[in-house]
C-alpha cells in the first residue's frame, strides 16, 4: 500500500467492490423491503415537488450490524423548483 502509485488506472478489485456496492444496495432494497419500489416512487414524487433533484436522488438499503438502513441522499440544488413552476 505504501508504495502504491495511486490512480494510474483503476484496479479491477476496486471496480468489483464498487460495482457490488451499487448493485447490492439496489438488490437489498428489492428483496428485503417488499415495499421498496413503491416507497421509492413515492419519495421521488414528494421530493421532486420541492426540489430539483429527481435524477440525482440516491435511495438505497444498506446493512449495518444486522439492521437494514434506508439511506436517502438528496443533493439540494440552489434553485428551488417551486419558484420556477408553482404546482
Amino acid at each position: 500500500m505504501l508504495f502504491d502509485f495511486f490512480k494510474r488506472k483503476k484496479k479491477s478489485a476496486k471496480e468489483a467492490a464498487e460495482r457490488l456496492h451499487i448493485i447490492l444496495a439496489h438488490e437489498r432494497g428489492m428483496t428485503r423491503l417488499p415495499f421498496f419500489d413503491d416507497l421509492k416512487a413515492d419519495l421521488i414524487k414528494v421530493l421532486s415537488k420541492y426540489t430539483n433533484t429527481k435524477d440525482s436522488l440516491d435511495i438505497r438499503v444498506n446493512r449495518q450490524d444486522g439492521y437494514d438502513i434506508l439511506e436517502i441522499n438528496v443533493p439540494i440544488k440552489n434553485k428551488a423548483k417551486r419558484q420556477k413552476t408553482p404546482a
Partner: peptide, 19 residues
C-alpha cells in the same frame, strides 16, 4: 498475490460489503 496487485478483492473489501 492478486490481492496485493489490486486484482482481487481483499478481505476488507468483502467484509465491508457483506457486513
Amino acid at each position: 498475490e492478486l490481492v496485493k496487485k489490486g486484482e482481487m478483492m481483499s478481505q476488507e473489501d468483502i467484509l465491508q460489503i457483506l457486513a
